[in-house]
Design a protein around this nucleic acid. Structure first.
Lengths: 194, 194
DNA sequence: GACTCGCATTAACCCGGGTTTATTGGACAT
DNA sequence: ATGTCCAATAAACCCGGGTTAATGCGAGTC
């Protein structure tokens, strides 16, 4: 089941329909604010968004990026009803569909197909998180950057260096130094190959 | 449903019973080896275990610790059937119950109660991973150490400094320095309060 | 053209953590 | 008592990344 089909199916569900909310958000606006409770599952139909923490010193660290056709939300909010530890911010104008978690879950519990979709979805999230934990534990910032360029090739052109740096856990200055190192190594490599 | 009840219930399931395997593992032995495929869900009934990566330079980084009454396994193996990126090693003698993931899943799909148990379990894992990602992104090694002492107070006495260091992503030497800093700050604090 | 604004880069300095090697001290065996 | 093993600490040195401040350098705007 692809993303559009999934949304279509949810929207045509009689029980769910009145709880579904389609909204647009301008670039720069926040879909969820840090410290706020939002128990919706948020389907991003168009645009680009980030999840990020702002520390008490005012520094922003990006947890993840989401492009069109992805599903967002704070597990903590959805499951526990507690305030979100992070914000969701639009990096481009975004079109989203929001559905309360408990409503979605109760529909899933009656529809094995849907249940399977979200179970698989959770598994995918688990795998991504497992990979990210590995990268922070075992890789240098430089290797995390290389990995990022591969894994996120499709959205890299839509991001700034500062955003990428924040995602891999370093400052923009450090990222700039890494890019310099990589470029120098490459030109040396080319020269060495001649 | 508590842990023993859950295992009892699984063991008394006629379909599952022939696939369930109870084994003992000596301290130091590996329940899953890095690079091996093991599609079992592993219930740790007694003992203490770790999941860890060994990098190609031979350094070991610990992903997580598991004490009695917890559930282990490689999502990647279970779901994708691919080799595990990490090993599970016994830090004490362990008693485990292993059940193939696909068998367990098919039983769950017919038993909403069980499905809910594992769905909740996945949610708990997600929350833990979310927290760990936050700690690596936003906290210093020293703050991660403080957090570890709080969150894992119940197993700290059973671990070495080297294991704790590996879990929070630093060397034992660095942890020793941090402990020294904390002790000095504490004795200063006490002195200052007099 | 001259102005600003935002992004990326650079340089200079500092500090936390890695690396290597050495030392201490407890547990255990002989 | 002596030797061995291992965990923990300590000292010396190096390097990556943080911090601050300065410098390009386009894209708009007036």
């Amino acid at each position: 089941m692809n993303f559009s089909d999934l949304i279509g199916r949810l929207q045509s569900d009689a029980y769910l329909a009145p709880h579904i909310c389609n909204t647009n958000h301008a670039k720069g606006s926040q879909i969820i604010k840090q410290g706020e409770v939002c128990q919706d599952v948020i389907f991003l139909r168009r645009g680009l968004a980030q999840m990020s923490y702002v520390t008490f010193e005012g520094k922003e660290w990006i947890k993840s990026f989401f492009a069109e056709n992805s599903v967002m939300g704070s597990r903590r909010c959805q499951i526990m009803g507690e305030p979100s530890h992070f914000a969701i911010t639009c990096l481009e104008d975004c079109e989203v569909t929001a559905i309360p978690y408990d409503k979605l879950r109760s529909v899933c519990s009656k529809d094995p197909d849907l249940m399977a979709v979200f179970f698989d979805f959770n598994e995918q999230v688990s795998l991504r998180k497992e990979k990210r934990e590995y990268e922070f534990l075992c890789l240098s910032a430089q290797d995390r950057y290389r990995g990022f360029l591969e894994d996120y090739a499709h959205i890299v052109p839509r991001l700034t260096q500062a955003q990428i740096a924040s995602f891999i856990g370093i400052t923009p200055i450090a990222l700039s130094r890494i890019r310099k190192r990589i470029n120098q190594a490459e030109s040396l490599g080319v020269a060495g190959a001649q």
